[in-house]
């Protein structure tokens, strides 16, 4: 008796009307995210009262923020050894090292990304319309190609899934402090990301030229080099530029692990409570990122619709 009445209540309910009127799935998603957020807050003991800093933290925070408009131009330490280079030079040197780490890492990553990305792109090895002209090629396409393709995909995802700082920690343990190892630590996950995106760009670029070349008898390598790659190149370089910006941030943060980039000096000044110097390094980092951000943004606006 009560079952049908329950059904009628449900069918009359505002919930169902809301569901029918089309806001249903949005409401569902927002509700799910709210539940997820609450779960996270509970797991992490996020208490809004902890957002109010203690008296010590408050004083330090005030002092830190008050120096935002007065970044240091000279050292704040009471004793500066004779012959220490002036602070602006030291900042510029840190900026230089940060750029060097990032540029070296991105150059390795672009090379690796191009190789792995083209192996992970379906555009050229699965698209032989004749299914391979010779027996050997047919066997190759059915056996070797899928293995190489799948293997590359797995490799890319492995490289990407370990953060550059974790690679850096691994290499620190394996080699000790070595700048070259830091560059490789950045380059590995960046290679994975670039390879993934390059493969997507290659797969999405128009295929007409490639098909024409193929019909004219070009080999798969020729089709790739002259039919696919030239069209994808603008997008590829624009994206590489964007990743260079990210590499600058990563390279600066590596300093926290003892490498001579911006993060190293920033952390050292902060721990000595030299907040003016901290702001100098922060502004240097922000300026560096902004320049490249503007540059890569201008490139993307022109090419990537």
């Amino acid at each position: 008796m009560w079952l049908p009445s329950l059904a009628s209540v449900w069918s009359e309910s505002a919930w169902l009307r809301a569901w029918r009127s089309g806001i249903g799935w949005r409401g569902l998603v927002i509700g799910a995210l709210a539940v997820a957020g609450l779960w996270a807050a509970v797991v992490l003991d996020l208490d809004p009262r902890d957002l109010v800093p203690g008296p010590g933290g408050l004083a330090q925070g005030k002092e830190f923020l008050s120096r935002a408009f007065k970044p240091a131009l000279t050292y704040e330490a009471d004793f500066v050894p004779e012959g220490t280079q002036p602070l602006p030079f030291k900042v510029l040197k840190a900026v230089r090292t940060t750029v060097i780490f990032a540029a070296a890492a991105i150059s390795l990553a672009v090379l690796g990304g191009l190789i792995l990305g083209s192996l992970a792109s379906t555009a050229w090895w699965f698209e032989d319309p004749a299914g391979g002209s010779t027996r050997l090629r047919r066997v190759f396409l059915r056996s070797v190609a899928p293995v190489v393709y799948g293997g590359t995909r797995v490799l890319i995802s492995l490289m990407r899934s370990v953060h550059e700082l974790l690679w850096a920690v691994l290499f620190l343990a394996a080699f000790g402090l070595s700048n070259f190892a830091a560059v490789i630590a950045i380059a590995i996950p960046y290679t994975g990301t670039l390879a993934k995106v390059f493969a997507e760009i290659l797969d999405e670029s128009p295929r007409e030229a490639a098909a024409a070349l193929r019909a004219a008898g070009a080999s798969p390598a020729q089709v790739f080099l002259f039919g696919l790659l030239p069209q994808a190149l603008p997008d590829i370089s624009a994206y590489a530029f964007y990743r260079f910006e990210c590499a600058l941030r990563s390279s600066a943060v590596l300093g926290f692990f003892g490498y001579p980039t911006l993060g190293y000096y920033l952390a050292a000044s902060f721990e000595n409570l030299h907040f003016g110097e901290v702001w100098t390094y922060l502004y240097a980092l922000i300026a560096l990122v902004l320049v490249v951000d503007w540059w890569s943004g201008a490139l993307r606006r022109r090419f990537v619709a």
Partner: peptide
Amino acid sequence: YVLAFLLLAMLG
């Protein structure tokens, strides 16, 4: 990372 480092000193 830099943001978290700075906030940690203030918020504990």
